[in-house]
Design a protein around this nucleic acid. Sequence first.
RNA 1: GGGAGGGUAGCGAAGAGGCUAAACGCGGCAGACUGUAAAUCUGUUACCUACGGUUUCGGCAGUUCGAAUCUGCCCCCUCCCA
Length: 374
Amino acid sequence: MKDFYLEILHVDKNCGARYGILHTPHGDVEVPMFMPVGTLATVKTLSPEELKEMGAGVILANTYHLSIRPGADIVAAAGGLHKFMNWNGPILTDSGGFQVFSLAQKRNITEEGVTFKNHLNGDKLFFSPEKAIEIEEKLGADIIMSFDECIPYPASYDYVKKSMERTLRWAKRGLDAHKREDQALFGIVQGGEYEDLRKQCAEELVKMDFPGYSIGGTSIGEPKDVCFKMIDYSVKYLPTNKPRYLMGVGSLDYLLGGIYRGVDMFDCVLPTRIARHGTLMTSTGRVNIKNEKYKLDFTPLDSSCDCYCCKNYTKAYLRHLYVCDETFGKRLLSIHNIRFLIKIMEGAREAIKEDRFEEYMNVTLAAFGDKRGF
RNA sequence: GGGAGGGUAGCGAAGAGGCUAAACGCGGCAGACUGUAAAUCUGUUACCUACGGUUUCGGCAGUUCGAAUCUGCCCCCUCCCA
């Protein structure tokens, strides 16, 4: 598909970080980038206009969730996701592979696919690689994911191997089923923390020649060094001219660590979820806006932030909204957290162009201070 | 004036002799959250010199080995009748 390709414009001389432009049918976006998650065709509490203003490029949506509500046919009848949700930028749909992990208690895996008992009413729902593609074609995102199994951590070598090999077979089946020319189907590298498995998976996927590759099975509770190993063991075997997407990562240290290792795209529910729960990422560290100490704090959340929230509101006001459970508070905090990560990415891109990404990463993390990195 | 029902931790509300420093809810305080079953979940919330100790269930005085729980008196609140 010619409308979709990654144009690498610069690779940092001192590390794997790369700057480029991802061309998609719905516009060009710069990488590395952070993609806000809008599972149900909405980034919770935020409007598309606000997301645009924050500098969001790609938005995620979810195949499993949308297939249940409202149903893929309804989205198709609406003219596809872009029209349905009024987002004319690029959209990426996850395949439901993550739900194989997050809804582990409600599903059964076979070679053919996964049978879910849907989380709302227990209805049976069968997802095969072909079915996932069929739904994703109806949804009509620019970038779509292969149906995989996101395995838990830790997992035994034998299990990871079996699962990865099945995910590979599923990737091939999805690829064969995929017909739409205006969608880029990504393969997902699994293989847990085992280098030989990651290598095998990546190499086999590369043979299938996907327009992009994801690194999956990360950000599910594994230690940071393990996550970085997973990235290294995957990136190493992926082509330089295709986008690399680290799935589910959203804390500062993992994001910067991923960029450092050559990852281009990231998504995570973390900024929006923790915002709704009163936790903010700021340039000087983590803030729990509900804390009593902010009662009389009439300064902005992050004085170096340019978001609508930080430019117009004080911590005391944000705390008040949170304490009163006002929707506007959740909106403002979500705006901030997303803008914060997007701004981190903007800074990363500038740093890469000037071959000083490593320094940027270290300075940013040091200022943040929190050992957990977010 | 007569009758009835009540007073339990910041609030609401269980408890009706030992297992009760006292359920539960709210409020308060703190924490978690990573391809969203998440506007969710967890911990904590009498006091202290805190793997222990000290005072609590309107007040005072009793009964009992032991009382928020039983008895007497007192104070206060609500409702009904005059």
